[in-house]
Design a protein around this nucleic acid. Structure first.
Lengths: 213, 213
DNA sequence: TCAATAGTGTCTGTTAGACATTATGGA
DNA sequence: TCCATAATGTCTAACAGACACTATTGA
């Protein structure tokens, strides 16, 4: 498939903001999402994974298609179509050489098509975070429940009720507690948890936390 | 973009089953979803809409991307990639010349890639039916609440509680009643409703029926 | 009249959200 | 000690699901 690109939207939590990995422009070239030319011959999904790995240096903990974009919007490749993949990396991951974390509200530097892709990618994340462990892949392997709630609040752009959040999470058996506690300056230390969903897919009722694999 | 196809998954309720529009094979050619070659030059979304219109004869009431497929799976076009669009038509729509409605559990005649596309398309419908009026576009403009519940049950593949379904629907102000009643053989006639969501996007709580426009 | 389907009213168990309180560290 | 944050207990309103009941037609 000539004339087409593969683009990556890589999200991470930075401080209290949600950020996207952006390649810095070099004087003449504009800032841009990481992208590559589409290779007609190799499987699409592995190309997405490879783009993520080549960019971030690690195999993606979670990755998904975010749609095909074109419709006349400008793209750095000058190709007519772009296939977008969306991935996440844990909080604290350093931006690779030539890249930087750019907050969601400071993406005006991107081209029109890539801006549309970021919006769509965030929608994909929001849609799937209650069925796939997306939020967990934005944290280290062990984390406090407050850490996790922060991620949810970042992605959903709204505040959640602390007690309810914990209750839902624990009663859905998606996390298991470790014996570690983490003290962070003042205040009582937080117990650390691990993503560890149990098999049961019960309930069918509440829609939140139907995380499984 | 050469070497690529645009495919359409068109769903409709037929009797008590969910069906997909399939082009009948002609001796040498296999049964297949409607598809066309991708045109590099025109906007993607309008190509999807046009494929739907050319196939069904009408502008789609709802249409969405369902993903890009390839990964070595066989496709009638012999192209390496296929962009899938998913649409729905009202119950009772006749299959156009050369096509027929094929029940979901009788799709073994399709090629591997197109089978994967149908699965993905149904997932897309399920994901969006609580935010977009997908189910309503599978019915005529006026319908009984039982009609609507039947569609939901078909798409979700599970039975819903009648009283709860009605309560949620009415309290969410998604439908408005008409003055028409429809008598269908025995039993009390059903009042007909119309899709007519009101503006308020309140609640944030329950996830069902956040239909808006 | 019976059968079949539409539509309602009431009860109950579950749970989200609010609020208050305790627990446990650092400053 | 005070402060900040974690964690928990209790109450209440909302609501899903169950069930039973009424309503209205055709056979």
């Amino acid at each position: 498939m000539r004339n087409s690109s593969l683009d990556l939207i890589c999200f991470a939590a930075t401080g209290r903001k949600l950020s996207v990995l952006v390649r810095r422009g070099s004087g003449r070239t504009r800032d841009a999402l990481p992208w590559t030319n589409l290779d007609t011959r190799s499987p699409l999904s592995s190309q997405g994974t490879r783009l993520a790995k080549d960019t971030t240096g690690k195999n993606p903990g979670w990755i998904a298609q975010a749609g095909v974009f074109g419709d006349g919007l400008k793209h750095p490749s000058d190709g007519t179509l772009s296939i977008a993949f969306v991935t996440v990396v844990p909080r604290g991951t350093d931006a690779p050489e030539g890249y930087e974390w750019r907050q969601m509200n400071k993406l005006s530097v991107l081209g029109a098509r890539q801006k549309a892709m970021v919006e769509a990618a965030l929608d994909v994340v929001r849609d799937r975070m209650d069925r796939e462990p997306v939020a967990f892949k934005m944290l280290p392997a062990t984390f406090s429940l407050t850490d996790l709630q922060d991620i949810y609040e970042l992605l959903l752009e709204r505040f959640l009720h602390k007690a309810s959040f914990r209750r839902s999470l624990l009663s859905a058996s998606v996390v298991s507690s470790t014996k570690e506690w983490r003290s962070e300056g003042r205040g009582r230390p937080a117990q650390l948890y691990r993503y560890n969903p149990s098999k049961r897919r019960k309930s069918r009722r509440m829609v939140r936390f139907e995380l499984l694999s």
